[in-house]
Nucleic acid binder design. Structure first.
Length: 428
RNA sequence: GUGGACGUAGCUCAGUUGGUUAGAGCGCCAGGUUGUGGCCCUGGAGGCCGAGGGUUCGAAUCCCUUCGUUCACCCCA
């Protein structure tokens, strides 16, 4: 074990980068709140059973990717691998269905899956997501997709693709599965081993296998759209109509199926095709059976989850990351040990007046301190030297043009205010 | 869990068919100014060449093991 390295698949967000994360979070919250969603903060771990029931026992997440352990009371605990199941649990626990109407929630935070890391995949990663509970109408599906669309738009991402499909309800999906299996069994000899396995367990997933031979086989299989029941068909058509009205471009992908068992009817992904193998930055859909499955009433739901690391990378690729600077406005240097007290006092005064101030702690040569001031990116440097201090003055230097003036101690705040406006957080 | 690629200074990387004290650029520190940054010049610090074992007179270089990183597969955001 190497104690000086973060555990596999985890990483530190350092101050400069954290500024960008804060920016992303602020913007995401802004849009979600504007759409009427309230933030919910659920625990980072839950009873393992919740995920077994919610996500589905035969999914890969549950079978091999969960961080599961026994606590000291012998309970099986799992670090949340996704956000929907915990939100649904909280929805049931707090009986939000009893308040009537719809419930609109969003979450944002770390998730955990014990997978082998690769580009765009970590063991601790971050997602935000929304859940709209209590609505069966296609308006809800459309609102969710539109929300995702507008959100990325708001962040400056205009080149993303939206893939859309319907996986039907429990009834018509069963019909389709039967037809699919029947069609595939005829040519099962040409399928890859993992697809042979999936043939029985989850034939839908076989549709997006990347293996050439499998693709040839599945290319000839029937489309789910030929099997959707009347209600599902109409639901899907209405969703697409609403998206058309809102001018949202999307691509219908009859073969888009998602890995989680709980989806019904609408499923969708938002994809950045420049991202490599892990190119989905958002995935979601309708889950009409999930609340009941988790022990609540039969309440329909629809939502999505978005991976923030992938969002970050996408923003970076598109040159949409903001320029975040942690540079101070004012850098203060003192030329002798005795004068560093004065510098400290001036720093405090300026900070309490709302200026972003950095104080050189070490009294070194003036040249060295000026270098530090320059490197900090400060707009103004305050120099406290013996000459000035004899007359209870300090030098204020504009680091851009090199101009400097001497000012009396009581006038510092006013003089600085003439040059810059407060940007710090402390305001009196 | 499986496979490929890669681990040399704080960072990005050189390092010839194995051959003395392991290099560059950037960054850092100091000096070129008695109290003035950016540009330039000079000097300096900083490496168990990921770790362990083996081959050899001699290993950063070859072999094995291990750890780590990374990309891909399975699967997924």
């Amino acid at each position: 074990m190497n104690l000086t390295t973060a555990p596999r698949g985890t990483y530190d967000i350092m101050p400069q980068e954290a500024l960008i994360w804060q920016w992303m979070e602020v913007n995401i919250r802004e849009v979600l709140l504007a759409y009427g969603y309230g933030e919910i903060r659920t625990p980072i771990f839950e009873h393992t059973e919740l995920f077994l029931r919610g996500i589905g026992e035969t999914t890969d997440i549950v079978e091999k990717e969960m961080y599961t352990f026994l606590d000291k009371g012998g309970r099986s605990i799992t670090l949340r691998p996704e956000g929907t199941a915990p939100v649904v649990r909280a929805y049931i626990q707090h009986k939000l269905h009893g308040q009537g109407g719809t419930t609109k929630l969003f979450y944002l935070g770390p998730m955990f899956r014990q997978e082998r890391p690769q580009a765009g995949r970590f063991r601790q990663f971050h997602q935000f997501g929304v859940e709209l509970l209590g609505e069966e109408t296609p308006l809800a599906d459309a609102e969710i997709i539109l929300l995702a669309h507008d959100l990325y738009q708001h962040l400056g991402l205009t080149e993303l693709e939206i893939y859309l499909n319907s996986v039907g309800c429990s009834e018509c999906r069963e019909e389709y599965k039967k037809a699919l299996i029947a069609s595939l069994q005829a040519s099962s000899s040409q399928l890859c081993p993992s697809c042979l396995n999936r043939l029985e367990r989850n034939p839908l997933r076989l549709l997006d296998c990347k293996n050439d031979s499998c693709q040839k086989v599945t290319a000839k299989t029937p489309s789910i759209h030929d099997f959707l029941c009347q209600a599902c068909k109409e639901h899907f058509i209405q969703v697409t109509t609403l998206l058309d009205q809102a001018n949202v471009k999307y691509e219908i992908k009859p073969r888009l199926v998602r890995g989680l068992d709980y989806y019904t009817r609408t499923v969708f992904e938002v994809v950045n095709t420049d991202l490599g193998a892990q190119n989905a930055i958002c995935g979601g859909g309708r889950y009409d059976g999930l609340v009941k499955e988790c022990g609540g009433p039969a309440v329909p739901g629809v939502g999505f989850a978005s991976g923030m690391e992938r969002l970050f990378t996408t923003l970076e690729q598109s040159g949409k990351l903001p320029v975040c600077s942690k540079a101070p406005q004012v850098y203060i240097i003192s030329l002798t040990e005795e004068l560093s007290n004065v510098g400290f006092k001036i720093a405090t005064t300026l900070r309490r007046n709302g200026f972003k101030v950095e104080l050189g702690f070490e009294v070194k040569s003036m040249k060295a301190q000026m270098k530090a001031a320059n490197k900090s990116g400060a707009f103004i440097c305050i120099i406290i030297g013996e000459d000035e201090w004899k007359e209870r003055q300090v030098t204020i230097k504009n680091m851009n043009d090199g101009q400097q003036i001497r000012v009396d101690l009581p006038d510092i705040v006013d003089q600085i205010s003439n040059l810059i406006s407060p940007q710090g957080v402390i305001n009196q």
